[in-house]
Write a protein that binds this DNA or RNA. Structure first.
Lengths: 215, 215
DNA sequence: ACGTCCATCACGCATTCGCGGGATGATGCG
DNA sequence: CGCATCATCCCGCGAATGCGTGATGGACGT
């Protein structure tokens, strides 16, 4: 336990020179303290098991051994409330997006001036995610791809209701009861759904419905 | 068809005064032209069916009738390449996140100065998404919630394989053939899966498997 | 007024499924 | 060496399902 008011930062970066530069920048900043610096993600993981969790971990993507991106889920498992900020030399979109998927809280360019580094750290503690527009766009695109409602199988309202009930795991009889129908009617709807979705089993229909967000 | 080089903007905003203000701001900007302004999303949808698609649509969330968020998917269906920028009075996170899921390209505060509006429009055309840190954080959180939902039901490898086959829509016999097992064995695995997942139907198992990313 | 789509209900039959039993060998662990 | 777990296999029964076929009434557009 350092000073009660200090925000604890850890740093994972293989370049020792750069690591020291950053560490000094942080230490100079009132309210922040750099309590740990590591050249490998493995070392930080080991340290997390014994030491107090930091508020923020600054994490290089290009590390020897375990990459920064691989490390994120494991770090997060040990320190669920710690913000993970990615440090990158340049804007490698693929990697940054991967890091975001892995659970990063934002990212910083290594070329960013000290003030920006500090501001980003304050931002992330305040609940904001440092992220530039290009990355943001990529993330948004992933979202709209992730919820692809564009495939329209022209299911009627009733058919959608039946399909929805199916995804809940109900059998025909239960669906019939819930929708106040006879099993025969449910059966007909089911067959129409099969035809429209081009499947021939309940599981196939449920799978397609969930994967394509039809419910 | 206006000037060939002008970027076409549409505006959907129910407050007529504010709408005119924005329209004038856009019109004054060299390279931009406000080719359509609507008080209701329905009107814009109708116009999209007959007129040339704009490059950008500025869209208020709080509209009478169809809300801006509801409108996005329909607008996008008619104009897949148009960027949708959300206009909000204040930072209503829930709505903005909903808009992003619906396919918005970014968002702007109505209180933002004209320069910021113009810059955001240029940004979005350049492939960047205007989005502030707080929203970005929300989006990141949704991502990390969405991907590592690794509830462990202690399924064995064989059970996972069977479950996977089920999500493909295969019946027991087919699964047995694909995994070179007897139907009886598949049946036993299936029953164990049901027990572990606490379901009693194939659809329930498939649903749980897909929703929780077990496959 | 006519056709089309939809929701609703019905019967019959072969297949599949859910689930109750029980059994064997392989493997890992204390 | 027991003990537990897992993967594999088997039987049988009643229920649920898939699918062909058919019918009725309402809504909607033209």
């Amino acid at each position: 336990m350092k000073s009660t008011s200090n925000i604890s930062i850890w740093l994972i970066e293989d370049n020792a020179t750069f690591r020291r530069t950053i560490a000094r920048t942080i230490a100079k900043q009132p309210g922040f303290s750099c309590d740990g610096d590591f050249g490998r993600a493995e070392d930080a993981l080991a340290a997390l098991k014994t030491q107090a969790k930091p508020a923020i971990i600054l994490l290089d993507v290009g590390l020897p051994g375990m990459s920064g991106i691989e490390a994120i889920p494991q770090l997060r498992a040990l320190a669920p409330d710690t913000a993970m900020l990615i440090l990158t030399v340049f804007e490698d979109e693929e990697k940054i997006v991967a890091a975001i998927c892995a659970g990063a809280s934002g990212y910083l360019l290594k070329t960013a001036p000290a003030e920006e580094l500090i501001r980003a750290m304050r931002d992330v503690l305040a609940g904001c995610a440092p992220m530039n527009g290009r990355i943001a766009r990529r993330v948004l695109e992933m979202f709209s791809k992730l919820s692809p409602r564009r495939n329209d199988y022209h299911l009627t309202e009733r058919e959608k209701a039946v399909l929805q009930q199916m995804t809940e795991g109900f059998i025909k009889k239960e669906i019939a009861d819930h929708l106040a129908l006879s099993v025969h009617t449910v059966d007909t709807h089911l067959r129409n759904i099969y035809a429209k979705l081009q499947v021939n089993t309940r599981t196939g229909a449920v799978s397609k419905a969930l994967k394509e967000g039809l419910v």
